[in-house]
Design a protein around this nucleic acid. Sequence first.
DNA 1: TTACCTGCAAAGAGTTTGCAGGTAG
DNA 2: CTACCTGCAAACTCTTTGCAGGTAA
Lengths: 144, 144
Amino acid sequence: MISDLKPYVERLRSSGLRPTKQRLSICKVLFDRKATFHFTIDQLKKKIEKSRKSKISLATVYNTVHAFKNNGYLKEISLRGNKTFFDTNVTSHYHFYDYETGELMDIKNEEIIVNKLPLAPKGKKIKDVEIIVRVANNNHNQKK
Amino acid sequence: MISDLKPYVERLRSSGLRPTKQRLSICKVLFDRKATFHFTIDQLKKKIEKSRKSKISLATVYNTVHAFKNNGYLKEISLRGNKTFFDTNVTSHYHFYDYETGELMDIKNEEIIVNKLPLAPKGKKIKDVEIIVRVANNNHNQKK
DNA sequence: TTACCTGCAAAGAGTTTGCAGGTAG
DNA sequence: CTACCTGCAAACTCTTTGCAGGTAA
């Protein structure tokens, strides 16, 4: 019943982090899953605490998540508002964002076809293209 | 040399706001221009204060900007990080975002062609599609 | 005169940082 | 043993709110 921790240790090491108990609990919540996981730091912290049945320091969650992001194990998503969202799906894909629920959903890469992209400003290069498709119920009023 | 204030008064009234001196200075900075203006509240406040040569309350800038946004005179832009950006260009268009300078630039609507969009989740309707094309110098390292 | 507005300051929300005691290697 | 890590709390940044005095209609 003990899950194999080697891949987590490896991800931590390659991100420049020592594999500690706390960080292994973070990894379990992040990477031991089939479906994509979209989260804010706060949501992640609560999930980890439920999973390990004890508190974890916010600072530890922050530094681990940021190290994973900087090493390509997590993606940060652009959203309006002042919360930072992360995504365990680091492959190229886009998102639905639901106004009412605040939920993010993946859109498979092949479900959006972009046929023309602009030239980057001179001296610059395109690094990535992010697409957010905002959805709401038909009767939803987008104004606050 | 006195610019015609009528259109500003109208925008304010139609947003449910009384035309006060402070709000007219906000309008001048926002709408008396040819090129698109992308800004954070803080940048806008500084610009207004330079333009009118006296302080303006942050609360006034916030409530006016939010009223304009809710009435379709300003657009809010999705970006990573915890700052809220606004755009005076409310027509359909997309953005370049420069990693190095933190600058936003408009992309004309016709410079991106999207040929396929996913179906919205059932019961939902697509409200808008936001595209951010991130650019950087060729030698830029995206990691922090 | 009444309802709304301004400016200030305090309160909130999210994120980052500093440090003393603890742990991995 | 040394360097790194954890947990806590304080500090920061950005945004929102409450309120007393002021202004538009």
